[in-house]
């Protein structure tokens, strides 16, 4: 299974970036092989509006089935829902810890966004 984890760096040992839309990087990790692709999210970091929508579209295109992040706002959540990507929010620590947790089934999926939209 492919999991998208927001990250401050390009490694599995990097810290999880609590932001989704404007995260520094998003790592697309294969939970079986632990092979991953680090996506540079700088275009969205500087987006004028709708960074979350764009990031959600991007990870869906990459085939991620789950997003693991700190905060996910309403527009990003709606986009992920439409794309069939499940969300695990309130994630912190290292990217690898998050991946391990989901492999072991120790996560709960969010039914709603956990952050208000902003202007």
């Amino acid at each position: 299974m492919k999991v998208a984890v927001t990250s401050k760096g390009t490694l599995l040992e990097s810290e999880v970036d609590p932001r989704f839309g404007r995260a520094s990087y998003i790592l697309i990790v294969d939970t079986d092989s632990l092979s991953f692709e680090a996506m540079d999210n700088s275009a969205n970091v500087n987006a004028f509006k709708g960074a979350g929508i764009q990031a959600a579209t991007m990870i869906s295109d990459k085939g991620a089935e789950v997003l693991m992040t700190g905060y996910c706002g309403p527009k990003a959540f709606a986009t992920l829902e439409a794309a069939g990507v499940k969300v695990v929010s309130d994630i912190s620590g290292k990217v690898l810890d998050a991946v391990t947790a989901i492999k072991e089934g120790k996560v709960s999926y969010s039914a709603t966004p956990n952050k208000d939209g902003h202007w």
Binding site: F48, Q54, A56, T57, S60, T79, A83
Partner: peptide
């Protein structure tokens, strides 16, 4: 769209 007001997913 510069404002990401429209997106296409699956």
């Amino acid at each position: 769209c510069r404002f990401n007001a429209i997106t296409v997913v699956s």
